[in-house]
Amino acid sequence: MTRLSPIPRLILRRLATGLLTLLIVSAIIFWAIELLPGDIATEILGQSATPETLAAFRERFGLNDPPMIRYLHWLGGALTGDLGLSMANQRPIADLLADRATNTFFLAGYAAVIAVPLAVVLGVAAALYRGSMLDRFISNATLTVISFPEYFVAYILILIFAVQLQWFPSLAAVSPGMGLGARLYATFLPALTMVLIVMAHMMRMTRAAIVNLLALPYVEMAHLKGVKRRRVIAVHALPNAVAPIATVIALNLAYLIVGVVLVEVVFVYPGLGQLLVDSVAKRDVTVVQGACLIFAATYILLNLAADIVGIVSNPRLLHPR
């Protein structure tokens, strides 16, 4: 009597493509470095390095092995949490990244916790009261904010809240032993910057998704059955809005993870983004690889999550013929 629902199959297939993508991306991140013109060791140590130091450097980073061996070695290490050594200061990258990554995810999470519910509620409200004052205000305000570079928003916030009102610090200095309250206070301005920007994108996308939905014939039919407006929205519109809204959220969380790079630099916040930018400037290849892998993996996983929510919430798949 139980026919196998296609859902597990679809989820498995989606997971498999997700993993495959991750594998390909890791390969790109690794092999991109191989395209480097010239020799990494000379590039890092400079033209003045003696042949002996160059040889020692190559030995230490295994540069004499064939690239395929080094890729597998790197990938195997990455899976077990070992990303090798920094070329600039020869410290283990995993240690370097651990704190930084925690800080970055903390900041992104902080912003997400505020932005996601607010944006979804306001976006839905704008769609429901289309053409109202609220809607027009939201649409103009969001258009303005998405036009602004992250650092412009950040500096305006600094100018108002740090320099003029002196309510919050302009530099988000955090240290490992800090309590949660102090940490939330110290990172308030960077979090607020990201909230504003992500909310703008999210509200526009949520509004568009809901407006599309409300124009569907079955929503009109519900009205013609004399169902209360509130119930039409709660029972007929929102269950079908889960997939589009999940996509919007995942897209924006991914955006948050990446947008954090700029905000970290503005507020001199010791996160992964800051480290990545510094390492790019120093051409510390191995650290760049490690940081890129973390960012890319997060991004891929978030998109994967959105797709899976979409599969699970599709009634046609939940109840096959």
Partner: peptide, 27 residues
């Protein structure tokens, strides 16, 4: 609106051209 809502579905009902689109796919 409250009076109209009370009439719709209860005393006046509607059958749409495309029932495939007028039925909610989620229920």
């Amino acid at each position: 609106e409250s009076m109209l809502r009370d009439l719709r579905g209860r005393r006046i009902a509607y059958v749409a051209q495309s029932s495939a689109a007028a039925f909610n796919p989620a229920w």
